[in-house]
Design a protein around this nucleic acid. Structure first.
Lengths: 208, 208
DNA sequence: ATAAATAGGTGGTCAGACCACTTAACTATT
DNA sequence: AATAGTTAAGTGGTCTGACCACCTATTTAT
């Protein structure tokens, strides 16, 4: 056995490094096109399937974007995809009911506080309409209501994580608040009583 | 053209979902063995190369561990690989950065509030020791400090999600607070001034 | 009983073949 | 000449089959 064995990296990991080098040397920027899979395969002396394993991993990490028939492009780094995938596995692995519902509730609380600062009177009226629409069931109403608030947070990552939890919660049997809650929150928005948001959430129990 | 086209997901993404289902249904835990690539390929009706694309991506994300000649195993989530890869690729984008740091901060705030109710005097002393240990750099100190607090939340899901963001934030250049912050938070714990937690966090700026 | 050889299962990798999609060049029609 | 339609080439998407390398357990030979 050789004295110093390099840990024998897998081909797709080497490809990953080579692609990074390539980007560096050619000073490629967001939106630029990478060489085609076949070209990379030939230049790097690796099979196309190995190149694809590297590219798919990069894609999942949000580093590249692939367009069928066009090519592979460097993308602005947005960890949303990977965070989502990871979160989905973490959720499935750990989610005790309580953890999920408790965490989701906290995200909703923070979203309400963030939205608070950006809501106009007009916005509040729109939101109110959503609560009075009785054609939807509670589940859908909750979703609509908070989707609106999360939009106002202007934090896409926060929104996506919440949305993921919201979807997971649908597989359980509890995921919304008492009808009065939604009305009261609007009331707080109107009367500008910021500190009440915290207590409203903390005092509210999730409906089973 | 059909009226409503589903976005036609790629096979490897479907495989990803199916594997998650499989883990869920069979209640697989860390260390358990996944079906072999060939078996998955057959069961899911996908080519082995597509299955591998999914598995390689999962591997890079640290969700599974592969042992040549043995099989594929669920691993305790260790994002080493993905963080390393990302770090070497990432061009920082402000909007994304802000989303992440803002969200992470809110999770830390909620953790502090949850921990508050469970911290004993003994715990607070332990926590204080962590802040006075000057052998670590700020990054590590922040990690240690909040890891402790998140443990106290007894919400594994919340902890995992935070940890994920913490890891991701390391690929950026800002992730901790002013030294005074950590001391002040301990002070709040000692003097039992719960409401101050909210304001402490809201008034604190992330160090760049 | 021990050691060696073997067989089967598993991941690692490659080559080649199609398919689906996009774009641009070319051609036929007006 | 302008337009519409066709074609060809390039690209990603996917599958199949073939080996190789590695591990384990069984079998076999000593």
């Amino acid at each position: 056995m050789a004295v110093s064995m390099s840990p024998k990296q897998k081909v797709y990991q080497e490809v990953l490094q080579e692609i990074r080098k390539l980007i560096d040397e050619n000073k490629l920027k967001t939106g630029d096109k990478l060489p085609s899979e076949r070209e990379l395969s030939e230049k790097l002396g690796a099979g196309r399937s190995s190149v694809r394993e590297a590219l798919r991993a990069m894609e999942l990490l949000g580093l590249i974007e692939t367009k069928h028939g066009e090519g592979t492009f460097l993308s602005a780094y947005r960890p949303y995809q990977s965070v989502e995938v990871l979160a989905s596995f973490i959720l499935q692995e750990t989610s005790t009911r309580n953890d999920l519902l408790q965490t989701k509730k906290k995200l909703e609380k923070e979203a309400a506080k963030m939205a608070y600062e950006r809501l106009t009177d007009q916005n509040i009226n729109e939101l109110e309409k959503l609560t009075t629409d009785l054609s939807d069931d509670m589940k859908k109403q909750h979703l609509t209501y908070f989707t609106y608030l999360f939009t106002k947070t202007e934090n896409l990552l926060l929104t996506r994580i919440w949305r993921l939890m919201e979807e997971y919660s649908h597989t359980m049997d509890a995921h919304y608040y008492d009808q009065k809650f939604y009305v009261e929150l609007i009331n707080i928005f109107r009367t500008r009583k910021y500190p009440s948001i915290e207590s409203l959430f903390e005092d509210t129990v999730i409906i089973k």
